[in-house]
Amino acid sequence: MEGRVSAVNTPAHTRLTRRKSYGRNCMESPVVFWQTPGHLTTLGTRIPTSRGAARSRNITSKVDPEQLALLVKHEWKLAYVTPLYRFQHTQLKLYSKHLTAFILAEKQQGVAIEVGLEAGFKVTLSTIHGMAETEEDAETVFIQIHSKPTFGADALKPVWRGWLTCVNGDGEYLRSLPPDFVSLPLFCSSGSESLTSLVRVWFERTFDCNFGSLFLNSTTLNWLAALWTGCHPTSNIRFLKLSWTMPTQPSLDIMYTVNPQDAWELWNSIHTEDSAEGRIHIDEVQRFMNGLETHFFRHFKIYLSAGTLTKVATSLGSAHHEGKIKIGSSDYIDTLLTLLTECALHRTPV
């Protein structure tokens, strides 16, 4: 009531100017809700609305199956990495030595000295050849940390794994980098949090780069659900599992497991093969997910849109919105990594 009275009493011209200034503010700094100030990216405007359908690629002919096996089955925590300054694939042996020394030094000065098994570490960096898809993609680097038992001649025990990769990275962006920079924007790690942070710190100091956590938004998860479902005729996905969390009190988890054949038939009824050389459009992905959510709604009358899509999984892999993935099989690995490389590049502050 009071507000209304004052509004009436306010001279008309002040209100007009104020309104005008609001308008100008809006024009000057567009409010982009998923970006914090200072994180504006050059890629922000180039979120693709369509992408190539997942195709089975005989990746084992390009990549050493033994190396490929290292990427499968573990759960990886994702992070983005800014371009590495003066990183050279030819110097991996030297980097291994430096990183080993760094970890040992840090472990010894810190409070958290683990006696026994973890007294000694051996770090190896290696290249996984053949993961790169384009000329601009840098080859994948794999890091493995083994602990050396102090007593006895027991075999080395792997305690931590991580890799930096770039698959189908945005060509224009990669070409625009100054010559001394190598972009491996996606970092996956599996192992103790303390070792992860040591590796990060060493990379940050040595190559003047920056790591940040990578979350997967629901659009990314929707893409994966559709891309993986599309693989079913050639590679049995066994199930399509979608998980939502509803913000109720206490929180409610809903897991919807769809029969793979039925999921594919729904996808097939939405996706038209003849649309521009096997490309998938975001609209088709949305309609697919809407179809599943509507089918669910017709049964349970629950609006899944009120909750968060937290996880998508098939036998080909799983992805969690907190930035965790599992690669179930090396088929279609490039489809997943292309999508994740893109997410990582979008998060990279410029």
């Binding site: 509803m246 109720t248 009190q249 206490p250 929180s251 409610l252 988890d253 809903i254 897991m255 919807y256 497991t257 769809v258 029969n259 039925d262 729904l266 089918h295 669910f296 049964h299 349970f300």
Partner: peptide
């Protein structure tokens, strides 16, 4: 038929629902 399994889970399901 469109086959699937839906699982609801919560520390207290009835309260959540």
């Amino acid at each position: 038929l469109f086959r699937g399994v839906v699982k609801f889970s919560s520390p207290n399901l009835l309260e959540s629902l």
